[in-house]
Structure formats: C-alpha cells, structure tokens
C-alpha cells in the first residue's frame, strides 16, 4: 500500500485548489431539487407520514454521495487523457492496489463534502434529521461502491467522451430511479423488483431509515459492502488494462 497517500494527497490538493468552484457546483443541484421538488410541491405533501422535504433530504444525500464519488472518474480521465499525469503513477514503484485505494478514498472524501453541503442547506431550510453513526456509515459505504465503480470504469474507457456516455447511461437513470425523489414502494411490484437491483435504491433506503431513526438496514449494509468490495477488486484488476 506504499504510495497510496501520495495518490490521495494529489487529489485532495487539486480539490482544495478548486474548492470554491467545487462547493458552488456541488450546491447547485441539491438547491434546485429542493426548490423544484421540495418547496415547489409545498409543505402539504406528505410521504410516509413526513413532509416531502424531510423525505427528500436523505434521498439527495444518497444521490449526491453517488454522483460525487463517481465524479472521481472524471478527475482520473483528465489526469489520464488530458494532463497525462497517469503516466507518472504508472512509472512509480507503487502497487495497483495503492493507486486504487488512493483514488477511492479521494472519491469518498468528495462525497462527504457534498453531503455536508446538502445537510447545511437542509438545516438552513429548517429540516432537522438524525445524523447518527449509522447515517454516516451508509453514506461512506455508498460512496465506496460508486468510487470503486468509477476507478474501474475510468481504467477501461478509451476517451473522456466514453466516460460521459457511461455516466449518462448508468448514473443519471439511477439518480432518478433509485428512491431519491419517491418511495419505491409506491411503484408497481415488477418495477419495485427491478429497482431493487440498483445499489442506490438500497443506499437511499438505508440512509433514509438512519435519518428517520428507523431500524438499522443490515441487509442493505451487507449488500452494499459486498458490492463495494467486488468493485474494488475489479478496479484493482483493471489498472493493468490501462497499460498500452
């Protein structure tokens, strides 16, 4: 694992240099969703016995931790195809696992930053939920899944355009269908079964349960952890494929 911290530190230094822009960019989406879906629908709308805004905030947390951890793929691709910094890592005496671990942790860090922004926006809107250890555990596990997926795909794509295509086909549909904006239970049974295949559905459910003080979602934790580990191993195996 030697060299892992160098990979992580580099991503964090870059994040720090662009912090203002990043925070602004991370705030725009949640703010729009809160205004459009939350305030726009009014406080009268109730979902599962809670106001829609209360329902929405944990969903946005799940969605944002997914999109921001997955965004590490773009940073990797910029480093690989545009600045060619990836060659510097390839030529360094570090193991593939150190590289993957550094990038995944950087993805998780980005996700945590975006979640903090949503919670601040939520608090400013008067939404007070339970941000317990279980809540943060699910946020981290969800980010781990999508950061590992991001590194894996970033090693397989041949251009930055391919990466954008993958985001459009996998991440954007999941963001809208994974229980972020509506309770999956309200969908027809066959749709529910299909949506249960999406990791975000489990993450949104578990994060929401934790935020509402409901029982701990053990199955979701096991499922997401298992999937995250699998993707992490795949990412590790994919690093060699990025070699010419």
């Amino acid at each position: 694992m030697r060299g892992f911290f160098a990979i992580y530190l580099r991503e964090i230094l870059i994040l720090r240099k662009k912090l203002f822009r990043q925070v602004a960019s991370m705030s725009v989406g949640p703010l729009l969703y809160l205004v459009a879906f939350g305030l726009g629908m009014g406080e009268g709308v109730q979902v599962s016995g809670r106001s829609y805004l209360e329902f929405l905030i944990p969903g946005l947390v799940a969605m944002s931790s997914m999109t921001q951890s997955f965004a590490i793929a773009s940073e990797i691709n910029i480093a690989r195809f545009y600045w060619r910094i990836f060659e510097e890592f390839q030529a360094a005496p570090i193991r593939n696992i150190a590289y993957v671990a550094g990038e995944v942790l950087a993805g998780i860090t980005r996700a945590l930053l975006s979640v903090c922004i949503i919670l601040i926006i939520g608090l400013a809107s008067g939404i007070f939920l339970r941000y317990s250890l279980a809540f943060w555990l699910f946020v981290v596990v969800n980010s781990f899944v999508f950061a590992s997926l991001a590194v894996c795909l970033a090693m397989l794509v041949k251009s930055h355009a391919d990466q954008a295509l993958l985001t459009n086909f996998f991440i954007t549909p999941m963001a809208f269908l994974g229980g972020t904006f509506f309770p999956v239970e309200r969908m027809p049974p066959w749709v529910q079964k299909t949506l249960q295949l999406l990791p975000l559905t489990h993450a949104a459910k578990a994060i929401r349960s934790s935020a509402f003080g409901l029982p701990f979602e053990t199955f979701s934790l096991l499922l997401l952890t298992g999937l995250g580990l699998l993707l992490f191993v795949l990412a590790f195996l994919c690093v060699n494929r990025a070699k010419e």
Binding site: I14, K17, K18, W83, R84, I85, E87, E88, A91
Partner: peptide, 13 residues
C-alpha cells in the same frame, strides 16, 4: 527517472 515527451505535470499544483 522519466521525462516524457509531453509535459505531464499537474498544472493546478
């Protein structure tokens, strides 16, 4: 040590 043909420094850093 390697100096590549293209400049592969981190421009933001």
């Amino acid at each position: 040590g390697l100096v590549t043909q293209t400049i592969n420094l981190d421009h933001e850093l």
